[in-house]
Design a protein around this nucleic acid. Structure first.
Lengths: 206, 206
DNA sequence: GCCTGATGCCATCAACCGATGACATCGGCC
DNA sequence: GGCCGATGTCATCGGTTGATGGCATCAGGC
């Protein structure tokens, strides 16, 4: 460009007075990514939308995260850290309550569930999501079950219970059926415990 | 183009000897759409891939179906008709067996489940899929339950049971956990009946 | 035998997308 | 005060996608 350019408001580069804080920009992108990926999924979320929501240019995504895929993985990690989901539980009831409470508090299934329910998720995203899911749900439930009951096929039982719980959570988030969507959470949790407790060995005390 | 073009094998239009059967072309597109949408979902399946798999040009999709979205809806209807899923069952066990058998026989979740698990599915696709799902699973299970037990909140129980069943089916199709993926179907069905029977009133006779 | 609608293919369009590199400005360091 | 790396924005690229319209060929009807 010619060197006659003057410092007008529309000149390139950071605008006068604009915040220059890479940690804040990065965090804004990450939180926007969590929200939008969690609501819409990977393909339906563009990096331009994420930048807009974060209030910065989308080109910073490549600078700070490397790629859209890497941003998604970072969003999964941030979600995992941000949700403060326990790694051990009093029991199935508490786990169901935690999962549904988190689900009810979000707009959409969240980036972790979005990643695992889609057959076209890239392997590295899927592995990151499944790893956290197992750590937060499967492993603790298996540990709990090993401590309380001696059932055959404990690992299968736990995996079936977690898959069922995720199906219920997803169905509720996406509003598959009227009652499932609108039922009070405590009533839903009670039904979940009745059902899944029958195979994990935690029958309700009533 | 110049009028000097000769009828060579690479000239435009239907090639010499090429089948001219719109019903066959349409059906080929539809079955290809079922398979690819069922395996990869809406966004990750292009109309060019569908045409290739069907052995015809993708432009015929617009001619015969109107749009990619309308093709998806036609695929959902075809899947529903093709799977011959009953609209009434002996009980939960038979329903679980049918759902898992169909799931195990496919490559991927299938177009109906793909449509309902994604938050970004268009409303008309979602409605078409949910309508069939309710007709094949929720309504029959509700009818069965009404005939056998007098529980509180029967509709909620049935909806929870179906959501759980779909979660298990999806988890198995996508290979979320090792045991869930590899367990023999009859063993998995037995666990599902133990769990979901506890809330639909069909306890196993053992 | 001719005509015409059906059938299928091809090229193209407009829009979008993830990624990249250039550039201006800022602020800390020397 | 000057320098230079950090920071942010902008324009652009190459590729992809769903949809469209033109064209050639075929086959049935008259």
């Amino acid at each position: 460009m010619s060197d006659g350019d003057s410092a007008t408001p529309s000149t390139k580069g950071a605008r006068a007075g604009r915040s220059r804080d890479s940690a804040a920009s990065k965090e804004a992108l990450l939180q926007s990514a969590r929200i939008l990926f969690g609501r819409q999924g990977f393909e339906s979320t563009t990096i331009r939308e994420i930048g807009e929501q974060a209030g910065v240019d989308a080109s910073l995504i490549a600078r700070y995260f490397g790629s859209k895929t890497d941003l998604y993985i970072a969003a999964v990690i941030a979600e995992d850290a941000g949700e403060a989901i326990p790694t051990e539980y009093e029991g199935l009831e508490q786990m169901a309550e935690v999962v549904l409470a988190r689900a009810d508090g979000r707009d959409g299934p969240g980036p972790v569930l979005q990643a695992i329910i889609r057959s076209d998720t890239s392997p590295e995203i899927r592995d990151a999501a499944l790893d956290r899911l197992s750590r937060r749900l499967v492993t603790p439930l298996a540990a709990k079950m090993a401590a309380t009951r001696d059932e055959d096929r404990p690992e299968l039982r736990v995996q079936v219970a977690v898959a069922a719980l995720l199906g219920i959570s997803l169905g509720r988030s996406l509003g598959w059926f009227d009652e499932l969507r609108s039922a009070p959470r405590d009533e839903l949790v009670a039904l979940i415990v009745d059902a899944l407790g029958a195979i994990t060995g935690e029958t309700p005390e009533r």
